[in-house]
Amino acid sequence: MRRAPTWPRHAIMLAVCLLMLVPFYWVIKTSLTGENIYAWPPSIIPVNPHLFNYVDVWYLIPFPRYLLNSVIVTIMAISGNLLFNTAAGYALTKQFPGKRWIVLLLLSCMLIPFQATIIPAYLITSWLGVLNSWLGIALPMLSTIICIFIFKASFEAVPRSLIDAARVDGLSEWRIVVRILLPLSKPAIATNVILNFIWSWNAFLWPLIVVRSPDMQTLPLGLARFLSVMEDTTGALFAFVVMVLVPGLTIFLMAQKEFIRGLTSGATKG
């Protein structure tokens, strides 16, 4: 059978990849360059490259503090999601009066993008008194509807006989979830962790609204603040950008398969 040569396709894909990588290269180049970054013409390779921009930015901004805030909020969101979504997902596998209504309610809630509720959400958060705190940032992200349904589907795939046997053995409901259902739902857990990781790690609009004091800022807020406050002609800002991107990219490259699977199953975020 005749087959078209593959090199044109390789050529196109190489060109596409090159284009996709240019922004990465340009920012890394700028973060390493030793000269004034506004010098014309910019050079393709960094001029007397050094890593001191990274040192500068470390002392210019409270990077560890931003990182701590981001990590705490992300951990809160992920653990909240694991706990609440597991519980809710398990509850939805059971039969109970009014189940249809609850499912319908959740499905219609899924249509409400969080961005469409920021004004009252801000007022509610301030009424709860958790403005400008880790809990306040994490609170709206503590449970995700799509992830509840992912857990529900995963739990329903577990054979009933297994659960019944455990119940006969006298395991409590929570034990059944933790000991039997969760170990059999690793992909669902991975999806949950990953989706909530990117959503809370990258969240910007909500922290921007909730956070007032500089020492509660998360990494994205720190970036935006650096951009608006600091006027400098070295690559420090771009060193900061690279430092912010590295954790996320590392996790993405490590968990690529789970990442992509999780995203396609949770495609309609919000």
């Binding site: 519980a87 809710a88 609850i102 969080f114 469409a116 009252p120 007022l123 509610i124 449970s143 509807i145």
Partner: peptide, 20 residues
């Protein structure tokens, strides 16, 4: 089991939508 999730959605989806 359902309460925590529903509370979050009530506080940050349903109530805001109505209030809005």
């Amino acid at each position: 089991f359902l309460l925590p999730s529903l509370a979050v959605f009530f506080l940050y989806r349903i109530l805001p939508l109505g209030w809005n």
